[in-house]
Design a protein around this nucleic acid. Sequence first.
DNA 1: CGGGCCGCTGAGAGCGCTCTTAACGGGGCG
DNA 2: CGCCCCGTTAAGAGCGCTCTCAGCGGCCCG
Lengths: 348, 348
Amino acid sequence: MTEPSSAAHRPTLEAVADRAGVSRATVSRVVNGGAGVRSSLAEKVLRAVDELGYVPNQAARSLVTRRHDAVAVVIAEPETRVFTDPFFAQQLRGISKELTAHDSQLVLLLVEGRGDYARVGRYLAGGHVDGALVFSVHLDDELPDIVRRSALPTVFGGRPDGGAPHTPYVDCDNRGGAREAVRHLRSLGRERIAHIAGPLDQTSAMDRLDGYRDVLPDAEPELIARGDFTPAGGERAMRELLDRCPDVDGVFAANDLTAAGALRVLGEAGRRVPEDVAVVGFDDMEPVAEQTSPPLTTVRQDIEEMGRLMARLLLRGLERGGALAGDPLDTAPSSVITPTALVRRASA
Amino acid sequence: MTEPSSAAHRPTLEAVADRAGVSRATVSRVVNGGAGVRSSLAEKVLRAVDELGYVPNQAARSLVTRRHDAVAVVIAEPETRVFTDPFFAQQLRGISKELTAHDSQLVLLLVEGRGDYARVGRYLAGGHVDGALVFSVHLDDELPDIVRRSALPTVFGGRPDGGAPHTPYVDCDNRGGAREAVRHLRSLGRERIAHIAGPLDQTSAMDRLDGYRDVLPDAEPELIARGDFTPAGGERAMRELLDRCPDVDGVFAANDLTAAGALRVLGEAGRRVPEDVAVVGFDDMEPVAEQTSPPLTTVRQDIEEMGRLMARLLLRGLERGGALAGDPLDTAPSSVITPTALVRRASA
DNA sequence: CGGGCCGCTGAGAGCGCTCTTAACGGGGCG
DNA sequence: CGCCCCGTTAAGAGCGCTCTCAGCGGCCCG
């Protein structure tokens, strides 16, 4: 561009048309791919576009096309956890990559508590975006309802609770990964394997607990402590466990942060890891799992890939003319469960 | 709303007007605050809005108002660091809170490498957003140029290098915080205080190094090692340092991640912290600083607040009718430097 | 050599909203 | 009693774009 595209007075299609000596319609065609325009004309148009620094006005465009090339990412998570946990950040990265590849924009909606739901609902219904990716739905959450009411194509991150039966989601194989973790502890000869669960109003925590029970159906209830996916919760739970079952020799923690807390308490209590107590986490979270002492054996999930898959699922649905909303049973993309893998480090 | 606001056929202003028995203009007035409309009429309109589940079409609205009530957040950071580091996440949270309070939306632009700059430029120039918040500008970066060319009001996160003189920014007092860290080490009686610097193409790393030098102008060059804000870089630098200056008894690391790496190497080398070597970090990063062993003494910056300030600065500029772009010298909001505070834990 | 078809282009009608302009009725004042 | 002004409302002109539809040549075929 030779002229700066000042925000103040930006050239319009009409200006380009005048300069190129053609009609608006022709310029529009060229700008949108140029199918069916004589190449000599197209060239002239392109030159005019360049000279004027023309950039299409998206508001005008979506007013008629009803497309926005934008997708909302809705993250509803109580203040504390969201951003101490790189989990969302990594998913966002995956989502962003996929959206970028499809020329779509990412609009981030961080929900600031329950009182903010109305705003989010208004935004989704307001025709700003073509679809929504929704995270971290808790059991009693009304977010799915709000999203459904907006009638936007949607993909959930993490298996939602029963409430939203026909909405596709992406989640890792929480249950299978948990099974693998516990089996690994057993294969190490551990006989008193405890579980520190996550907050059980989230399906991921429930599923991991179920996986634990799959392998150890007869585990005593004392061996299961309740955590909350935070290091502090892990410390608390580990103390309880040590108190109730001093002979514990293996711990499967619901996530790495929890495991980090448990590790600390174990250290303070003079238990050697993994000699006295073997510990396995879940997530393989970037800075945490490798930083603990000893480094944490954990169940890896490919978080970025999950984000990418969510976006892909949604975009595919959109390409089919919003089939997700229109004809859910027949053409809706189905959910995806991604695999997990045990990563062996020093702690088990 | 009694009727669902289906994305497919959404009621228009006209429909509401018909139902309420008034003109489009009146409905528009009511929807936008209702100044100068008889209350009996306003009530009727409100009822119609409710019954039809009317939500204004934003595309149509911004086509004429040229406002979007949306702000772009541009994050350009080489793949690796962005999302292992809760730094951005916390700033985002602050930004989101402030924008929400002003009824603005957050559009996230993650730049996927240099090749992606064109896309970002197009987006910014495309009239989707009212302003931009731009992060992590490196020394030789062309991002500021691209942003300037879009003529959008902008606020930077972190002091930009000389290139963008009149653009306001928000940054913490990197230099002052560094001075405080080093002074603290000295007050502990340490005499061989080293610095592990960050990547020196970023002003934050440069400023922290400058702060170190302010207090120790005569420090030998061997006491300064180069890191990259990652734990691995911290390990590498710490090994060099131990090698070059075995008598080192204090380390000021450019950030907490670096300090964590250094701590690990120190442990492996059999140096006790803080007895043999005292260590101070920077950031007071959520899960890291408290998790290290021993817990890290560090310089705290209020990251969320910085995000909030960035948004506030930008919005204030927008309210003044885009004064940032129009009359930069006179009315542009000026930059803000936020204070830091030393947080004493066990490592120093 | 004429008719029909096809490839390309232009004209024009809106998309849903805001905002300016003009109209209207009622009250105060001359 | 008539005029003017003000508060309130309606009408209408676009914002910048896409898309349909008609028109216009040229070419092929009969």
